[in-house]
Simulated assay, not measured.
Amino acid sequence: MTKKEEYVIARYEHGGERFEILVKPKEANELKSGKSISLSDVVVSDEIYKDVKKGLKASPSALKKVFGTTDFEEIARQIILKGEIQVTAEQRKEMIENKKKQIIDYISRNAIDPKTHLPIPRTRIEMAMEQARVQIDPNKDVEGQALQIIKEIAKVIPIKVAKALIEIKVDPKHSSKVKSQLHNLGEVKKTNWLGDGTLIAELEIPAGMQQEVIDKLNSLTKGEVEVKILQVK
């Protein structure tokens, strides 16, 4: 049985009717924000209520009138996507903290210090967010908020979104393995095979991920790879 503090009410009102279902707050907000998630991982029960607290269930006629169906999954999805998700202060605080971590991660991967062309440490990003007093909405998507926050913290620290173009050179011993992983590392701009089986490739990656990508290449090749930063823009 799901503990009471682990679920909340998702409510949708339309045409003078009110509909409520019990959902897990984190999963419901992920679904609402567009994440692909199974409805069965979101809802707590398969009951649709007129008033959860009073235990009053919605009538089939009301469901049919508003949603055009009595199918639980279709209705529950609409309630979550179109309605409001009620959360406690503690749940909202936790959701904001989780979203904040995701935003900081996005910024650290995609932005750099334009003076040094180096990634910005997560702690520095977090401090800048506090200085700029940015507000985080737990219901809005990470990328949209992160791009807006970058504009705000640019008043506090030098920062910009950038891409890095890198060239990698891998000897024949590891070239096939690396080639199969290139698309997982970034956008492949060029590949060239030398006569001896050496692979030379150019990748465009988020500028903040330079060291992460280099570390992955070193792991794949046991350190036997040459990496050059061709451009940061």
Rank of each mutant, 00 (worst) to 15 (best):
F67R: 07
S61G: 02
V227N: 10
A62D: 12
G223K: 08
L220W: 09
L199F: 06
S38Q: 15
E90Q: 14
Y106A: 12
G223T: 07
K50E: 13
D141W: 00
L118D: 08
E226L: 09
I79A: 05
L185H: 08
K160L: 09
E73W: 07
P25M: 10
Y49S: 08
G144R: 14
L147A: 05
I107M: 02
Y12H: 06
V170N: 03
G223W: 05
E94S: 06
K32M: 07
I166F: 00
I79Q: 03
K228V: 13
V8F: 04
K222R: 11
M127A: 14
L217R: 04
V225I: 08
M1H: 06
D41L: 14
V225D: 08
N29G: 12
E224K: 10
E94A: 15
L39Q: 01
L118A: 11
E202T: 08
K101W: 11
P138M: 02
L147W: 11
I229T: 05
G195M: 14
Y12E: 03
M127G: 00
M129Q: 05
Q181P: 09
T198A: 06
V225Q: 06
K160E: 15
K160P: 00
I103R: 06
N98S: 12
L230Y: 00
K65P: 00
G186E: 08
I80E: 12
A111Y: 09
E20P: 04
H183D: 08
M95R: 12
G34M: 09
Q102H: 09
Y12D: 00
K54P: 00
